[in-house]
């Protein structure tokens, strides 16, 4: 099978997963109690007004027709109107993504900046003091809930030292620096558990690759220990690290919901959470689907990254 065909088959597989996922979400939301028209109009509304609105929203059509029109809307970017905000859901999601995407990206960057040096350092000399430090860090980092880290950071850096705002988000129009300042503590809170997991994986991968023959070949060329480590061991140890980065995406998203809540950031997690308390079902439906799409798309990207990191996969698979 040619590589192109293989990629197309894989993409088709992901598309199918997305369809099944979206249908599952749709059915669950359908089964949820509460009629959107009644929620919008309130309990005192007349029966015929409710019926008119139902017809207007297209709620009186058969279920499969509504599912199909939802999917068509997802493809064209028309996700319908929020019951409580009265604005288009797509717009709502777009606004919130402007907070959540920078937050998760910043957190990922911080996590990599911590875990890569720490994991490589620990893995290059197993059993040494630095290895012990890295092991303790990763054990604690995995165990500590990120929203609690968030609370501790607020306690220390906002309330005691006053270096950072304790929460809220000024928006990007006021200047990028203010926006970034508001995101620093939340992204650290989000990054620490990620960094812990990645440190662990990096360490294990480095230990394994360091024993490979080609590292000895590099040393026999005259490369010093560190040069051989960074130029030969590390590039070959990145594959499991990237895999883990992909596997962590669902946790990153869950974490974002919690951290946004701690720091009262108007992100997508807060949107979903508020939609749940206001029973804004159409928002829930679309946000959950969007999260699923992100997880699946990131997995596709990770697949692509493999080929860059490991030339063997370019020709073989």
């Amino acid at each position: 099978m040619t590589p192109a065909l293989k990629h197309m088959r894989r993409a088709a597989g992901y598309l199918l997963i997305l369809l099944v996922t979206s249908f599952l979400i749709f059915v669950l939301i359908e089964a949820a109690p509460g009629d959107p028209a009644e929620i919008m109009l309130g309990t005192s509304a007349q029966a015929d007004t409710v019926a008119a609105l139902r017809a207007d929203l297209g709620l009186d059509r058969p279920m499969m027709v509504r599912y199909a029109s939802w999917i068509a809307g997802v493809v064209t970017g028309d996700l319908g109107q929020s019951y409580t905000y009265g604005t288009p859901v797509a717009e709502l999601i777009g606004d919130r993504l402007a907070v959540t995407v920078p937050l998760t990206l910043l957190a990922t960057i911080i996590a990599i900046c911590i875990s890569l040096p720490l994991g490589v350092w620990a893995g290059s000399r197993p059993g040494a003091v630095t290895d012990g430090v890295a092991t303790v860090f990763s054990q604690f980092g995995i165990a500590v809930p990120n929203f609690w880290i968030g609370l501790l950071l607020i306690l220390l850096f906002s309330l005691s030292l006053g270096w950072f705002p304790a929460g809220g988000f000024p928006g990007w129009d006021d200047g990028i620096d203010k926006g970034i300042m508001a995101l620093i503590l939340p992204s650290i809170a989000l990054a620490i558990p990620q960094a812990a997991v990645l440190t662990r994986v990096t360490r294990a991968a480095v230990i394994e690759v360091a024993n490979e023959d080609f590292v000895r070949t590099a040393r026999a060329k005259g490369l010093g220990r560190n040069r051989a480590l960074w130029l030969h061991t590390v590039p070959n140890a990145l594959l499991p690290v990237v895999t883990m980065l992909g596997l962590q995406i669902p946790f990153l998203i869950s974490g974002a919901v919690l951290v946004e809540n701690v720091f009262t950031l108007p992100g997508i997690g807060t949107l979903a959470y508020q939609a749940l308390s206001q029973r804004d079902l159409i928002v829930i439906q679309n946000v959950v689907l969007m999260f699923a799409i992100i997880v699946i798309v990131v997995n596709l990207i990770v697949d692509g990254l493999y080929a860059i990191l490991d030339p063997r996969l370019r020709t073989r698979k």
Partner: peptide
């Protein structure tokens, strides 16, 4: 394998938001 891929896209908090509606 398919079932796993679908379930994997639902971390606990997301499922809870969805199930919470139900």
């Amino acid at each position: 394998g398919w079932i796993n891929s679908v379930l994997f896209a639902f971390p606990p908090i997301l499922s809870a938001i969805l199930l919470g509606a139900l």
